[in-house]
Design a protein around this nucleic acid. Structure first.
Lengths: 146, 146
DNA sequence: CAAATATAATTGATATATCAAATATATTGC
DNA sequence: GCAATATATTTGATATATCAATTATATTTG
């Protein structure tokens, strides 16, 4: 069986691209907010936009599983970015609130993320980006349906 | 600052695609070889192709850092897929050898990987794939140079 | 309404990721 | 040949990932 060597496949291209982006984005975030990770930042942004969101819903949006989300939120509570308290309407769920420290971060984070996204997409046309999304989506759907 | 919601960005598309592919590919591998992960499989393939490769070189090819590679190889030795012994030419390095169990896996792994790759790329033209690689590479290089 | 089922979140086990610091050996330059 | 430097690998700290099993509460249905 003749197999393309992994590093030449499109999957490797996808993976190395997202890793390079993450490394780059994380570096820029860390410079401004040392103890904040990209993913914790995204969770903050989501919670800010949709305050009623459950952990499960956030997990789906950021494409992570519930267990990961539980642990991520644990560390965010420990780092004092979030407060977790009981939700009296549905006691299986928690009420998640952004702390003062979290709100401060929300002031400086968006421009950094904006810059990360823009600068990593420099020189790529709208059209090219749209095509990228389309092709990626085909791959994703193939994986889901098989 | 108006920020696109993370799940709508191209980065999310990239990330969710590779995750879906990994999940799909891992499922197919696990059915045939329960204790083998995708990445361990790739390391086996690489070592088979390039037996003299150092851990550092493998790490670069599979786009991981040295520390991760050390730990991955530790678990592969523990699972009896690899033997690690001293390299007398350069005693900073190790000699990595694929065990019988590893060789057995190498017989059944390639067709599975082949199938994973093919079926997830169904309905995508050569041209479209080439364009995908080109665009991803632009992003990757933007991240590297910034 | 009670039993069955569904849902939200956690926990345990295991694998991986990154960074920075440490260790051990090789190589280079004076 | 020795000191300075470079290289290969490991280790520690911390964050994350997935799966399966568990807990606790809600909802549905006979």
């Amino acid at each position: 069986m003749k197999l393309a060597i992994p590093s030449e496949t499109v999957f490797h291209a996808i993976e190395s691209t997202i890793k390079e982006y993450r490394k780059y984005a994380q570096k820029n975030i860390s410079e401004a907010i040392p103890d904040m990770t990209i993913d914790q930042g995204l969770v903050l942004l989501f919670l800010n936009e949709y305050p009623e969101m459950t952990q499960k819903e956030i997990a789906e949006l950021v494409f992570r599983d519930n267990a990961s989300m539980t642990r991520m939120i644990n560390t965010m509570v420990k780092k004092n970015y979030l407060d977790r308290s009981m939700n009296d309407n549905d006691r299986r769920r928690y009420k998640l609130e952004i702390t003062k420290k979290g709100k401060d971060v929300l002031k400086i984070l968006p421009p950094i993320i904006h810059h990360n996204r823009n600068s990593s997409l420099e020189g790529i046309s709208k059209n090219e980006l749209r095509q990228l999304q389309i092709t990626l989506n085909k791959i994703r759907l193939n994986c889901l349906k098989n």
